[in-house]
Simulated scan of single mutants.
Amino acid sequence: MTPSIAATVQDPRLQRITTAQPYPLLFATISGAHLYGFPSPDSDVDLRGAHVLPLRQVLGLDARHETVEDSRIIEGLEMDIVSHDVKKFFNLLLKKNGYVLEQLYSPLIVQTTPEHAELKEIAKGCITRHHSHHYLGFVHTQWELFLKESPHRVKPLLYVYRVLLTGIWMMRTGEVEANLVTLNETFRLPYVDDLIARKLAGPEQGTLDDADLAFHQSEFERLRAMLQAAHEASTLRELPEDAARSGINDLLIRVRLAQGI
């Protein structure tokens, strides 16, 4: 963890912001550029988590506040906050949704509970070979965003490589790793470190020459094909384990009842 990221996680303002959320949190972690390993000094803080709605509220006709979102400057920090009620979050875990896996397993933990640790153990049985479809779809969108801009910026290109390598790694290992710096210790793509350095250097270094485009187009297609091949060769399960679904259901009941009316 770089010093800047460590400082972000330990910032007392972030602890206060988390404590002030409208519902008790099962966990809160940091996602986005800080998690991916290439935050700029002006990067906002992407706080993600799962909250527990009161029992009375979820038993009523209208289930409100299943998702809580807040995007603004709080105590001088540019915050982007998204949390889902535990039932919604748990249901997303049972689908091929890479976002919630990355949030759950983010090592940048702002708030945790014993139930968070329990959920991380259970959710290992939710990772399937079909999570590759999440990353294949996501990277297509990121590549289109990269191409649409002129001049072409380094930031969306880094997101492209982050998504591809995360997907390949998951298909090969069954593990969640969203940090591009860590991933590149295995993949050893020489241009990745250069791109990260250019993004961190500031806006004037954050664009690419047209001459670079053909190379990155080729690498995008090569790595996308590698992700597809990793999916086809993967020995991961086809569906979440029955034990994982049962464990998540039991955990949901317990955390809901513990919250009370």
Score class of each variant (00 low, 15 high):
Ser71Arg: 15
Glu66Asp: 11
Ala33His: 04
Asp11Lys: 11
Asp46Trp: 01
Leu59Gly: 06
Met79Ala: 02
Gln57Cys: 07
Ile81Pro: 00
Leu93Arg: 02
His51Ala: 07
Lys88Tyr: 15
Leu59Gln: 06
Arg56His: 11
Ser71Gly: 07
Lys88Met: 13
Pro22Ala: 07
Asp85Arg: 05
Ile30Ser: 05
Val68Ile: 12
Phe89Tyr: 15
Arg16Glu: 10
Asp85Trp: 11
Arg72Met: 12
Thr29Phe: 08
Glu78Gln: 15
Arg13Met: 01
Gly32Trp: 02
Ser83Arg: 07
Val68Tyr: 14
His65Cys: 11
Pro41Met: 10
His51Tyr: 05
Ser31Tyr: 08
Pro24Phe: 12
Leu25Trp: 07
Ser43Met: 06
Val45Glu: 00
Pro54Glu: 13
Tyr36Leu: 03
Ser31Glu: 08
Asp44Arg: 01
Ser83Trp: 07
Ala33Trp: 04
Phe90Ile: 14
Asn91Trp: 12
Gln10Ser: 14
Val9Gly: 10
Ser31Cys: 08
Leu55Ile: 01
Leu53Phe: 14
His34Asn: 12
Val86Glu: 14
Arg56Ala: 13
Glu69Leu: 08
Pro22Lys: 08
Leu77Phe: 05
Ala63Gly: 06
His34Lys: 09
Ser31His: 09
Ser71Pro: 02
Ile30Ala: 08
Leu93Gln: 07
Val52Glu: 10
